[in-house]
């Protein structure tokens, strides 16, 4: 494979407004979309704003929408596009634009603060925690989350409904509730905190109608809907009051290798 010139359309602007700008950029073997954005910065638009850090899919900073789909730019290879295809990059739609591809993601940090933290078990000293691998694995899957917020961006509960943001924590933080609820040693209940009820009453679990969009965009492959949200719904309310839970339990698919 050799270098070629690709056509890019990148949204540029700020809170006041903006538009798509055209760029023609050289693309080399094995490159990802973030490489191309960096080349535009270095050669054509030094002030093009973009967040990034690790460039290895581990930090979750370079989230954007590539041809309308929420993705990490560092993990989107140029080889998935045809050479004559125009690649369009726009900022995450569910969050207010700061500048160019950078959005204001403070919504997520506000929601993180609303989830009560891990409650350590009383009378168990540091160093004396005992847990079985099979028991920690459920929460470990959710702790793979790199907080790229692609699930928060794609979830239609808030994507097109700004008014729902106050009442809905979004998949990432409902998953955080599930993670704590499944932690083998979390002592929330002993401290008088019902995480399941809080998920329903305070974090808006009922808004989720398990369309699995969050799972589809997760770059870590976390089965957010199947393994976090549906079990949380099942534990939160008696299933007969939530037909969607009943439906979810029918259409659920878990991977074969997954023993859970």
């Amino acid at each position: 494979m050799t270098a070629y010139d690709a056509r890019f359309r990148v949204w540029r602007g700020d809170a006041e407004g903006g538009s798509l700008r055209d760029f023609t950029v050289e693309v080399h073997d094995g490159e990802v979309v973030l490489d191309i954005v960096h080349r535009i910065q270095a050669t054509q638009a030094s002030d093009l704003a973009v967040r990034w850090n690790c460039k290895a899919g581990k930090c979750g900073s370079c989230s954007a929408e590539v041809n309308g789909r929420p993705r990490l730019m560092c993990m989107t290879r140029m080889s998935v596009f045809a050479r004559d295809e125009t690649v369009t990059i726009t900022p995450l739609r569910a969050f207010p634009v700061v500048r160019d591809l950078v959005t204001d993601v403070s919504f997520n940090y506000a929601k993180a603060r609303e989830v009560p933290a891990f409650v350590p078990p009383e009378g168990v000293a540091a160093g004396a925690y005992r847990m079985q691998q099979v028991d920690v694995e459920r929460s470990q899957e959710f702790r793979k989350c790199i907080e790229c917020f692609l699930c928060q961006d794609t979830c239609h509960v808030v994507r097109d409904h700004e008014e729902n943001k106050a009442a809905f924590a979004g998949p990432r933080f409902l998953m955080r509730v599930a993670e704590l609820d499944m932690h083998p040693l979390d002592a929330a209940a002993e401290a008088g905190l019902d995480r399941k009820r809080a998920a329903q009453e305070e974090h808006g679990l009922g808004y989720c109608n398990i369309t699995k969009c969050c799972t589809e965009v997760c770059p870590e492959g976390i089965r957010i809907t199947d393994n976090a949200l549906i079990p949380l719904k099942e534990r939160a309310v008696d299933r007969k009051y939530d037909p969607l839970v009943w439906l979810g339990s029918r259409i659920r698919r878990r991977s074969d290798s997954d023993p859970r």
Partner: peptide
């Protein structure tokens, strides 16, 4: 170092485990 690792567990960290349930 051991105290610093054990302390993380009391803050919610979930390390991989040994068969007897300790940190692997």
């Amino acid at each position: 170092a051991p105290d610093r690792v054990w302390e993380l567990e009391t803050w919610g960290a979930l390390f991989d485990r040994t068969p007897d349930g300790r940190i692997s």
